[in-house]
């Protein structure tokens, strides 16, 4: 009796293990059906936040069997009309053995008509991949935008592909502002501009920071200092009348936002970073800044948070800065 039970137990155990192993078996790969009609696909090539005035790039591919005919047109319809510089490229690209994208002209330059951007093909082709550059318009800020890519073929068929919705950031961006010690030294976050000794007095109420360079002490060097900071952080500086804001700053190193630095793809500052950062106890000066360093900033009226990145610095007392700004 007992030996019989034990044998059944082992048999059950073996069956269970067999079932387990069998269930792990991979499904056989099946060759997909060949394309028998006009089909399309799309990818978004741009990474990171979608910032007004900057482009979003897509690659839209379409193809149909040669026996079915040729592609007649391709078009994109955006839910919000693109800004100046929006276009659908009339070249198709292939990648050569050296890894370079080589253009092949397939149609006439695109035409924008309201929400739609269209390319009419003028070559006999049954496959193409077109790039679409959508310049984010100011009116899209803080909203979402969607895109419908579509193509038509000579056999009367059409295909379409929806992309999005994509949220457009509330951030503003300004790149490559030159600052110099004692002249173009007054930075306004509100205007996202740099004023010099001549233009600063007229914009005194909007100046948030003063750029200065001091070779000594060696720990000073390049600095962004609030006009209201302690005099020891503004040595030898005579501020124009009315320049008196106290802006909070926090130094950061290695935060090379791609949109500002254009190096190290994959690092982006987004709206959420500005929403969450707490600068309540930050000082109102940032000294000893170097190239590729940055500072988080909050204006004295709490209207804006910003991030200023130092693209480059020069030992003669100048620098190139770029900034992202978020209206609170």
């Amino acid at each position: 009796m007992y030996p019989l039970l034990i044998n059944r137990f082992y048999a059950l155990l073996i069956i269970s293990f067999t079932c387990l192993i069998a269930s792990c078996k991979k499904e056989e790969y099946a060759i997909p059906d060949p394309v028998s009609e006009l089909t399309n696909d799309c990818i978004k090539r741009t990474l990171g936040p979608n910032i007004a005035t900057m482009p979003i790039e897509f690659a839209y591919a379409m193809a149909l069997p040669k026996s079915k005919g040729k592609i007649i047109s391709a078009q994109v319809e955006a839910s919000i009309a693109g800004g100046t510089g929006t276009y659908l490229e009339h070249n198709s690209y292939f990648t050569n053995p050296s890894g370079q994208d080589v253009p092949v002209r397939v149609g006439t330059p695109s035409v924008n008509d309201g929400l739609t951007t269209k390319v009419n093909f003028n070559v006999d082709t049954n496959a193409a991949t077109l790039r679409y550059y959508y310049t984010i318009p100011e009116e899209a800020r803080g909203k979402t935008v969607t895109f419908t890519f579509s193509s038509t073929a000579s056999d009367g068929s059409s295909a379409s592909y929806k992309m999005g919705p994509y949220t457009i950031s509330k951030m503003d961006i300004k790149r490559n502002l030159a600052v110099s010690n004692g002249n173009a030294a007054y930075v306004s976050i509100e205007d996202m501009a740099v004023y010099n000794n001549t233009t600063a007095p007229a914009n005194a109420a909007k100046i948030d920071l003063v750029y200065l360079f001091r070779a000594t002490p060696t720990t000073f060097l390049h600095a962004l200092v609030s006009p209201a900071a302690d005099a020891q952080y503004l040595p030898g500086v005579t501020l124009p009348a009315g320049v008196n804001r106290s802006t909070k700053l926090r130094k950061v190193f290695n935060l090379q936002d791609y949109n500002l630095a254009r190096i190290n793809v994959g690092l982006y500052i987004e709206d959420r970073d500005f929403q969450e950062i707490n600068l309540a106890d930050a000082p109102n000066y940032a000294i000893a800044l170097r190239a590729e360093a940055g500072t988080w900033i909050q204006t004295t009226d709490n209207k804006y948070r910003a991030y200023i990145y130092l693209n480059s610095v020069n030992a003669n007392g100048s620098a190139v800065i770029s900034m992202l700004r978020y209206a609170l």
Partner: peptide
């Protein structure tokens, strides 16, 4: 510490 260090953070 260096001149200008923000000792609160």
């Amino acid at each position: 510490v260096l001149f200008g260090t923000d000792l609160k953070n």
